[in-house]
Amino acid sequence: MPDLALQRPGLSRERRDALLGLLLIAPTVLVLGAVIVYPLLSAIALSFQSVYTPTLEGHWVGLANYRELLGAGGFWAALLTTAIWTAGTLTLQILIGVAMALLLHQNILFRSLARSLVLFPYFLSTVVAVLVWRWLFNDLYGIVNHALMAAGVIDAPVNWLGAMPNAMLSIMVVGAWKFFPFVVIAVLARLQTIPEALYEAARIDGAGPISRFFDVTLPQLRDVLTIVILLRTVWDFKEFDLIYLMTGGGPVNGTRTLPLIVYQQAFGLNQMGMAAAYAVSMMLVMLVFMLAYLQRARKAAA
């Protein structure tokens, strides 16, 4: 065996290794620093300023932005809207996702085709999903109104996106359709690792399909569901594209969630400082879920 120390004079093997490791991570650190850490710190700094977007001129205002958004501003109303949207669409995603994963785990006919069809919405651009659903929900020519009228469920066309609470329910449904495949993928992967012996044992004990689900399947899915719920809470909470493109936050401010306010303040009302204050406040709320996910993900990785 060659003497490694002789090949690398001057430095110990550990030192050389650590240096090489640092060299390899350097591009990552530089890029993340420039495009994430620096902008993140700027966002926090911006939130204490009043900046007019077109001229980019600003001055320090201290806590004035925060005082305004927590007082007269729309923070609490938007937080409530965001929470309702997140809870609603996430519940649908989990219910549909788990049910679909259980069905697709069975040996159904043309299973791989069924899986592809079910998973595809997740990979589709939100822009495409929104265009399709806006066409489906169209009040005059939309197929949803036609179908419901033909079935006798409604007598007149329903305004799905221009009235409350329809608009909120509609975006929840579209969100569920777009994002439930994530739950399916995660749950399906976990289902495949549950030992068949557990089900055999339950069968011998006389457990029917329903009690097998609650006594065997659900406890096995608990960890994966916790992580999926945390991740999807963070992602649904910060969802911008889908809501902005479906309703623009309307009618009035019925579906105006926090990410939409940030965008509106910065590029509609040209108040970049105020926008940053909203963004930072929103991030502080999200931090609870982000930290909970971080903790679990690190534990799982270790």
Partner: peptide
Amino acid sequence: RETLASLVLFTYLLPSVVLISPLYLM
């Protein structure tokens, strides 16, 4: 190294709207 790994995971969850104004300015 571990701090960096956690930071990467943290940035993975960061909302785009937080970074959008400073990135625009930059």
